[in-house]
């Protein structure tokens, strides 16, 4: 049986890890390679890096830190942030990334997903969707949650999967940074309607929140940032709790 995955997320700005609350108020959370190596050794199943460096500086800095992460870790990792072309993806894969995630660029140009899936395979293309509740549904936001779009979560998720996305990374902006648990209801609906794995993001506060994301939200993986970066919870502690509560997780050593 495939294990439920625990994924620390590192927001990266100019090669450093940062973490915000509600997508804002960024705090320096430490050296990216050091943190990545620590999480890899502690039993993180994957890592996700979201590169929020300003676009004009991104290309030069990215190759360097991605290569350093690839050398320092032995688990798969995904890089997102400003990916708009096959060339961007090729450069990342060559530097050691396993998957890429697209968000705003896919909203601007949905055919980008088709092109990337064709060129690199669906397994390499993660569609990240940030959404918050409005008018009884979930409105999709772009540019790190700053700009509302006219797309809605479930329709958009179905479209990106039909276009070839291999995984959905769904962040509830309403839950992000609150530490009150994941958005269970939309997660379960996404699982029901999609044939690809769904990664839950936004709201992790306690080990029980992860348990609920897997059991109630039926997520394949759960992602968190702040609780890991600031030492509120360690990955081995979290996995021991999940294992003791009947969740199939990878425990090593």
């Amino acid at each position: 049986m495939i294990a439920k995955r625990i994924i620390p997320c590192l927001d990266v700005k100019e090669g450093r890890t940062v973490k915000g609350v509600h997508f804002e108020n960024l705090i320096d959370a430490g050296d990216i390679v050091e943190l990545a190596a620590r999480y890899s050794e502690e039993g993180a199943d994957e890592l996700v890096f979201l590169d929020i460096t300003a676009s004009h500086d991104r290309r030069e800095t990215r190759r360097d830190w991605v290569e350093r992460v690839a050398r320092a870790t032995r688990v798969p990792f995904t890089v997102g942030g400003g990916i708009t072309s096959e060339r961007d993806v090729e450069a990342l894969l060559e530097s050691g990334a396993d998957k890429i995630s697209v968000n705003s660029a896919a909203i601007d140009n949905p055919a980008l997903i088709d092109r990337l899936a064709r060129a690199f395979g669906s397994q390499c293309v993660v569609a990240a969707i940030d959404a918050k509740q409005e008018q009884g549904s979930w409105r999709v936001y772009r540019q790190g949650g700053r700009v509302a779009t006219n797309r809605w979560l479930f329709e958009w998720a179905r479209e990106v999967v039909n276009r070839g996305a291999g995984e959905i990374l769904f962040t509830s902006m309403d839950h992000d940074g609150t530490r009150r648990g994941f958005a269970l209801h939309p997660l379960a609906l996404l699982d029901e309607m999609l044939r690809v794995p769904v990664i839950a993001s936004g709201g992790a506060g306690s080990p029980g929140d992860f348990h609920d994301a897997f059991v109630v939200g039926r997520a394949s993986a759960a992602l968190a940032a702040g609780i890991f970066h600031f030492g509120d919870m360690t990955i081995p502690e979290l996995k021991r709790y999940l294992h003791a509560n009947g969740i199939n997780v990878r425990i090593t050593g």
Binding site: M1, I2, A3, D45, Q123, G166, R195, V196, P197, S220
Partner: peptide, 10 residues
């Protein structure tokens, strides 16, 4: 079955 089969298995 969900594809790809992605993640850790025994």
């Amino acid at each position: 079955y969900r594809t790809p089969h992605v993640g850790w298995n025994r």
